[in-house]
Amino acid sequence: MSTAAVARRPRSQLGPALVMIAPAALGFLVFYLYPTLRGAYLSLTEYNVLGSPVFVGLRNYVDMVQDDVFWNAVRVTLLYVVLNIGFQTVLAVGLAVLMHRLTKSVLIRGSLLLPYLIANVVVALLWYWMLDYSIGIVNAVIDAVGLPQVAFFGDETWTVATIAGVNTWRHLGYTALLVFAGLQMIPASVYEAAAVDGAGEWRTFWRITLPLLRPVLVLVLVITVTGAFQVFDTVAVTTGGGPGNASRVLQLYIYEQAFARGHFGYASAMSVVLFLILAGAAFAQMRLLRAGESDLT
């Protein structure tokens, strides 16, 4: 990247820069920084939204350490992220490579992108309906084949995987197209050289495609992992956290504490922790991203 300082322009461009970032800075200060600080303060209070906040020091954080449901939510969220990102990334790379090697059909790419255009809530409802235990089409097919029906959302062993799968369905096409675009940046000559050397598809994929794709993949991961940690809509519309606490992801638990149970201070404290988790994950990925950049160029 072109961050190397060029000594030809000694004058600072602070004035024009301030003008150009002014609107974004306004939005940032008012709708990102201020609410974050306010939320951090609220995490030290007891606040039920309808009344006014009462300062309680670190009590919310002490409660959190002892709250089994909170720790469970952290575990469930991590499980979801691993499953969702796992499914999504592997399938997207596979699909992108298939498209890259087989076809440039806009129709196929267009179809794959369709789910991404539909709202999360709608996607969740659609699959909730299709995966219904008794009257959903998927179980009707499973039953017709002679297999035992599966309670996709109701069975503890399936529920997180199901939710991860539903979100994979929505994001797969988009992720695959991003990877596909990355593949197109790999010069055709590289493949030609590989073909001349007599390398098979499989070998070409592992030896050439994947290493050259790494920077793009890391960028895709930075975006998708941050999003996956904040899963909410899909769970809220389908299981509502159940059965038991099996799918009570962190963001849903935060929402419940804040808006259904009136413990906004406690919810804010958990948000602070979620923020720290995300920051940690992002930091790790940024290091990977930086490591990846030297690969491509």
Partner: peptide, 19 residues
Amino acid sequence: PPLETTVGASVNDNFGAGK
């Protein structure tokens, strides 16, 4: 029915479907 089957299908729809 096991509890896990109740997520989604309403108990009355199952009744309506003869289950």
